[in-house]
Amino acid sequence: MTNTLYQSIKLEIISIKERWLSYFLFFISPVIIIYIFFIAATSIVNWGVFAGLNLTIFDYLGDNIIGIVILFLSTQMVVLRIVGERSPYGTLDRELIAIPRISMYFGKLITNFVFVVLQIFFIYIFAFQILQIKNYANPIHLILFYVLLGLFGLVSGLAISIFSDSKEQAIQTVPFFIITLLILSGIIIPIDQMAASLKNVVSFLPLTAVLSALLKLRLSGLGFEDVFKELITISGWIIIILIIGLSKFLLEKRK
């Protein structure tokens, strides 16, 4: 099994090399987006629970932009990695001759996860070291939540890819998935101003949990012990989506 996983990872690396321009754009686009936000969001926050702390809007909302970028790109990165190859004459059929589906799934997940982690370090250095976004937290704690969000994006992208019947369907599903999470994340509508029936539910959504944890750590100065609920929530989502996607992939009949 380890051997086939290794082969799968090698194939995924070859695939990444072949599409290097696409991955290069994945790598630099977060930095461009964050920089545009940095230029635009220079006003001082004088409302809410962070008024008077001399924070710019970039300081206040930076996590939200970084989080959405990480989630969107990690989902987008893998959303076509299985669906395209599930077509009758796709590459996956050829790969499946030598590689079991489970190795194929984890090969794609592990290889892209390494890329996402590198991307997160790059984003961190750019946003926190170069643009100096305000931060009271331990960087390791922040990076852990970014990595978990990236991992959630990857398992979600693979799950979408597995459940979609065509590339078009997979591509159409990503904005629906991301925008739904975005609306309920507390960025557009603060959670305390949401409909009462939604307030208790939304805090258990993955993006909401991660952004809430990042805000508590980074700007409220709270410790890791204050974000266990959010840590459990995002870990739970990763495991659930991974199990659902992998089960469908392993159990489906070949077309």
Binding site: A51, G52, Y136, S220, L222
Partner: peptide, 13 residues
């Protein structure tokens, strides 16, 4: 009232 709103749930390490 404004400072109270800001100061609650804040910490220093």
């Amino acid at each position: 009232p404004e400072l109270s709103n800001v100061i609650e749930q804040k910490a220093v390490t």
